[in-house]
Simulated scan of single mutants.
Amino acid sequence: MSLIIRHPNENDLEGLTALMYEYIVDFYKCPKPPLQKIHHLIHTLQKEEKGIQFVAEDNGKLAGFATLYFTFSTTRAEPITVMNDLYVALEYRGTGAAEKLFRSCQTYSLLNQYAVMNWETAHDNARAQRFYEKMGGSKEDWLTYSI
């Protein structure tokens, strides 16, 4: 296996879309967003203004992706990144793809002088929680709400 971490390009649209649907629908059991919305999101992130994506590629096949969004922290009064997504296809789990994607997000955040990289995961996603703790992350005291 020769995993490469890179930014997606136009040739990745179909493969990245498929991975994002696996992540959204199969993994998180959320409704399937319309194709045009997924493509709009991918194209928005390719501009690297509001966020950025990384993909893990193995011999021409996409194995996973990670998404960073750019925002600010009022309590820090500085820009931060939020790793909103880190997904590796089932057949590539345990291969180091998740760690490489995570490290790419972390490195990008550091090199671009973001104060911190935050992320969240579901309460019942024990595998992800173990992974994030292994990567040096610690649980915060904040609860996430949505409306």
Score class of each variant (00 low, 15 high):
M1Q: 09
L3G: 10
R6N: 06
H7P: 01
H7S: 09
P8F: 08
P8N: 14
E10C: 09
E14K: 14
E14L: 13
A18M: 04
Y21A: 08
E22K: 03
Y23C: 14
I24N: 05
V25K: 06
F27N: 09
C30M: 15
P33G: 07
K37H: 15
I38F: 02
I38H: 01
I38W: 01
I38T: 12
I38Q: 00
H39Q: 14
H39K: 13
I42M: 02
H43K: 14
K47Y: 08
K47L: 14
K47I: 13
K47V: 13
E48A: 14
G60M: 07
L62K: 03
A63T: 04
A63V: 03
A63Y: 01
G64A: 04
F65R: 00
A66L: 02
T67N: 04
L68G: 02
F72Q: 09
T74M: 13
T81E: 11
V82N: 00
D85Y: 02
Y87F: 15
Y87P: 07
V88I: 10
E91S: 13
Y92W: 15
G94I: 12
G94P: 11
T95D: 07
T95R: 07
A97P: 00
A97T: 00
A98C: 06
A98L: 03
A98K: 01
K100V: 09
L101T: 00
R103N: 12
R103C: 03
S104P: 10
Q106V: 08
Q106I: 05
Q106L: 15
T107Q: 15
Y108A: 13
M117Q: 06
A122F: 07
N125V: 08
N125K: 10
A126T: 13
R127L: 15
Q129V: 12
Y132T: 01
E133K: 02
K139E: 08
D141H: 14
W142V: 13
L143D: 12
T144C: 11
S146G: 08
